[in-house]
Nucleic acid binder design. Structure first.
Lengths: 296, 296
DNA sequence: TTCGCTCATTCAGTTTTTCTATACAATGGG
DNA sequence: CCCATTGTATAGAAAAACTGAATGAGCGAA
């Protein structure tokens, strides 16, 4: 591709458009600049090539014999590029790509997706479970669900629900837990990677995290949850993680009330892309689902 | 070609080069910029397309599934453009294109070209006889021969000979011309388009152009020459125009001595193009030919 | 593991390119 | 003959591209 370095690509494009439309004005309109700009490109290109490409006349630009051979090749080449871009732009509207945290996906979203698919059988959903928030502009993710403080620059964020935490354990364990102070007597399940320390919940009872007993430590909230279900201790859970296990009777929340963490769940989409039908449908379904899960 | 307006062509080229070389550094080297520049192009392009094209790793850039489909099309498209430029650049080295004034061509150059062709039978010469000096960078003219003061910006100019003027007439007429004052008694042939007035030659004899007799007026020096040969008067000729007619005995210069016009003949070529073998051969032949025509 | 290496990315500042706006020149049709 | 249209020239403004240095992330060897 060495030859390409010797000319300006935009000048090639200008020449191609002039050749096809037959005039500077036509090319200028197509490319979206003034005829003067096209003229300059053309003159520069002819100088760099050492060939006249067009014969000038008052009625328009007529290709020289050299131009006759040169221009069709440009048209061919730019045609390929245009096709490539066309294909790239044509997203598959029937596929909705979601980016969510792995635990949110497995413990809350995926069990409910079947219902969404019943309502919208034409939309194929693809879930990308990743820890990091992807770049909604650069990736092909349509929507993301994330926990945060709502400060997402250049992203359209819709509030879903406040994040709240509360202890959960197996029904057996719950029998021994009448008051928060009883936590001192049971194994505590800890998630080392959690951003929410027990202290957030303990504060309301003037308790200290250091005073809590030992217990198992896991690298992941889902593992904590499994341990809690298995009756191995008490974990600090949040609503989306524990909701289904509680509904199924596998877990109970021994103490009433939830503690807000100050963070919230947000539905995110690119500010620069217009939502398509699938995105709109999912947004609506999700908000309804959240609302019925956690009535205000 | 509407899609092409939505992205930067240079970014496409950067992506193509990265896809082919597998790394920013490789692409940067090929295009001749820093890796940082390529990186920025790539990020911008991915944002504009809404697709990741490459998976980043410490070892290099690996195309995503989307990139796998996208990049080959770019390579194809740019390949066409590169081919077009390659063909454009490959001038036909066996053809030497000269741009000269029509009279210089017909009266001096063309009669001598046969000799050049005998010496260089592999070089096909094409003579473009035009009045205007063409743009040596933009046209496919290899060499030009022009009269001027040597001030040719951005052009490599080689001095050939000073331009000199002198009266010529048929041998019959010459018999009546013993001294410059005798001009007052013969018809004067004038070239209305000539840039060299009679006055230039008359000055040395303190004569005035207005005092010269009437005679025929022509729109071209070659027509004057024909009239002079036909014995219709005296014309103010210059060496390249009259040389062959004088050598053939058709014309004579009744007065000894030539008058410099202040201008000269120059061999011109583009400063930006390296001369090829044909150009070099012609330059040498031309200078020899001029030297033997007008020994210093 | 820790160091050193190679990558890619980011950022601010600068250079280069590109574009616009305007005036001008040439041409051909009404 | 005039007028509309088209290409060209130029200067200044806007946008893009590029650099160079700092940063961070992954990999392999000591």
């Amino acid at each position: 591709m060495s030859e390409l370095s010797r000319v300006h690509l935009n000048a090639l494009r200008a020449a191609e458009a002039v050749g096809r439309t037959g005039s500077l004005k036509g090319a200028a309109t197509e490319i979206g600049v003034t005829p003067g700009a096209i003229s300059q490109h053309l003159i520069g290109l002819e100088r760099q090539l050492g060939h006249r490409i067009f014969e000038r006349s008052a009625t328009g630009m007529l290709p020289t014999p050299f131009g006759e051979k040169f221009l069709p090749q440009l048209t061919e080449g730019f045609g390929y590029l245009d096709q490539a871009l066309l294909a790239a732009r044509r997203r598959d509207e029937s596929v909705l790509t979601l980016s969510v945290a792995p635990n949110f996906a497995s413990k809350w979203l995926v069990p409910r997706l079947a219902q969404f698919s019943r309502l919208h059988s034409d939309i194929r959903v693809r879930v990308e479970a990743t820890t990091m928030l992807v770049d909604l502009d650069a990736s092909d993710v349509d929507l993301a669900i994330r926990v945060g403080n709502g400060d997402y620059p250049d992203v359209a964020a819709t509030f879903l629900a406040p994040q709240q935490v509360f202890p959960v354990c197996s029904p057996d364990h719950a029998k021994t837990l009448k008051a928060p102070a009883d936590l001192m007597a049971v194994p505590i399940l800890r998630d080392v990677n959690s951003v929410i320390p027990w202290q957030v919940w303990l504060d309301q009872f003037d308790m200290k995290e250091e005073d809590l007993p030992e217990g198992y430590t896991f690298s992941d909230g889902a593992l904590c949850l499994e341990a809690a279900i298995a009756g191995q201790g008490v974990m600090l859970a949040w609503q989306f993680l524990a909701q289904d296990a509680i509904a199924a009777g596998q877990l109970v929340a021994p103490f009433p009330g939830c503690q807000p963490t100050g963070l919230a769940y947000w539905l995110l989409r690119s500010e620069r892309r217009r939502p398509n039908a699938a995105m709109t449908a999912f947004s609506k379904w999700l908000r309804d689902e959240v609302a019925s899960s956690f009535p205000a």
